[in-house]
Amino acid sequence: MSASQAFPSVTQLTKLQIDAVERWHREPIDNPFSGSETSIEALVCQQHEFNYRLWHEEDTARSPSATDQEIAQVKRAIDKLNQARNDMIEKVDDAITAMIASAGVDAKDAPINTETSGSAIDRLSIMALRLYHYREQADREGIDAEQRQKVLDRIALCEQQHADLSKSLQQQLDDIFAGRRQHRTYRQMKMYNDPSLNPAIYGSK
């Protein structure tokens, strides 16, 4: 089996994300791939989980009834989750790099995309969350016809964007594993969470 055949299709990955969002809203979060933490599916699921947690922390941060102390706590939680989310994007990209290397794919002279496959998978994760919550709003009691139509219009747009991005990512992955396009991991190198690089942290000592 080639590396491209071993890598799950984008359709499989987006189904994993969509199913996970629905399941996590019904029951406690679990990772169905806990026995294979290095698989692409496991990494995508773990990265998706951080986006799920981030989404709900962001909602809490905007509550009019939240106290200053609660907002400060949420802000710190958001920082940690966002760092973990970005770390997982890099892990997904690193896993793709490893699969390409093990397959002996040579693409050193091929063009490079501005966005990595891991970053595109992250965007699809956020889109799965957005679609779930828009559909939730469309079904909410008490919503008037004008607001419901506004939500339905946005759902249609999100579905189109999700389909476009899914197709583009599949084409990119096909090209990467065929050697027609280079794949690289672009390091986020966030400075704000590094005590040695954030002046607001090291300057307070």
Rank of each mutant, 00 (worst) to 15 (best):
D144A: 07
S65F: 10
R23T: 14
L16C: 06
I100M: 03
R85N: 07
Y192C: 10
I143W: 00
Q160N: 01
R140L: 04
I126F: 15
K108M: 13
A120F: 06
G203V: 01
K108F: 11
R130K: 11
N31T: 09
H133K: 02
E159Q: 02
T60K: 15
S39D: 05
L54C: 15
D109C: 02
K80M: 13
G35L: 04
E115P: 01
S125M: 13
S166H: 05
T97A: 15
P8R: 00
E146I: 06
P8K: 01
L152A: 11
T114K: 15
A42D: 05
L16T: 07
Q5C: 03
S196K: 09
T60L: 10
A200S: 08
G104Q: 09
K75E: 10
A145P: 06
G179K: 04
S204P: 05
C45W: 06
Y52Q: 03
G142S: 05
Q161W: 02
S168N: 02
Y134I: 02
K15F: 00
V105D: 02
D93P: 14
I29K: 11
E58Q: 12
I155V: 06
A128V: 04
Y52D: 11
E58L: 15
A61P: 12
Q12A: 04
A101E: 13
I201W: 08
A42P: 02
H162A: 03
R154T: 13
